[in-house]
Amino acid sequence: MPTEVKITSRVLITSCVIHMEGSIDGNNLDKLESVVEPLLKDPNNRIFIMDFKGLQFIDSRVVGYITFLYTTLNHSGRILALISPTEAVDDTLTLVGLKNLIPTFSSIDEAIKKLQ
């Protein structure tokens, strides 16, 4: 069964939010990459917030991409934050150890307030 995901983004003053709904795996990861890439190129985007509220599943390729994003942003003094991952996604991120690195918040406002 092909996995489907809907990804949208919006840019705030010094941050950007990427909303995801559905499931992402190696087969449709390119959709996320194509949304994130232009945002990465803009140096004004200091805080990247990934809204995981609607995301049901991610696989190891997606975890690898999140790690890459974290490392890339970290090297340029920028921050990656996650919002409310669902239980399944939270389990995956915890298992792999990413939650040791990337802060998680319950809302976008909370994330922006605490990270700015």
Partner: peptide, 11 residues
């Protein structure tokens, strides 16, 4: 048992 730690190659 959750194995814990962090994957090799991340940091």
């Amino acid at each position: 048992i959750k194995s814990g730690g962090i994957a090799l190659g991340m940091i």
